[in-house]
């Protein structure tokens, strides 16, 4: 399961939803896998406002991934030489936008973390109730035993 998915998941136990500690779920004993995919720069740029950056940083650090910057990247950070291109545009008054944009290292790193890195096996733990959800063959199981429903 992709790490970006964790941006939209919480503990399945009803009473946990109101507690801020139920998000994000914390990976534990995780075996990671990398499934490469084509980078989609417009998507990455647009998704930035939806990312719960602090929580993604926490997840990345818990998984032992290279640490993410404290502040989220800006749209400009994702394009190689974006500031330069803007300057050219101003100087010549021509549309430089038609030139194909090259993803920056920041964009590649973000793509790798959010969409290419997945939890193959392991657990996701609620920070509020400590319930553990198993991940098996890349599928997280949020079904609760009868007494917790």
């Amino acid at each position: 399961m992709k790490l970006l998915t964790l941006n939209f998941l919480t503990c399945a136990i009803k009473t946990c939803k109101t507690s801020p500690a139920s998000f994000p779920l914390h990976p534990r004993d995780a075996e990671l896998e990398i499934i490469e995919s084509e980078i989609n720069l417009p998507f990455l740029r647009n998704i930035l406002p939806r990312l719960m950056w602090e929580e993604i940083r926490v997840i990345a650090s818990e998984l032992g991934l290279p640490s993410l910057p404290t502040t989220p990247p800006t749209r400009e950070d994702l394009v190689e030489g974006a500031s330069q291109a803007q300057a050219t545009e101003q100087a010549e008054g021509e549309a430089v936008a038609e030139v194909e944009e090259v993803p920056s290292q920041t964009a590649k790193d973000l793509h790798r973390i959010l969409l290419e890195t997945g939890i193959k096996e392991g657990k996701l733990v609620c920070g509020n109730c400590a319930h553990e959800y198993k991940v098996m063959e890349g599928v997280a199981n949020f079904l609760l035993p009868g007494h917790l429903v």
Binding site: M1, L4, F8, L9, V139, L144
Partner: peptide, 16 residues
């Protein structure tokens, strides 16, 4: 962009 299909009861695990 496809995320995942998770195993669960309805939408119980989805962030409000």
């Amino acid at each position: 962009t496809f995320l995942d299909v998770v195993n669960g009861d309805l939408a119980s695990s989805i962030r409000p």
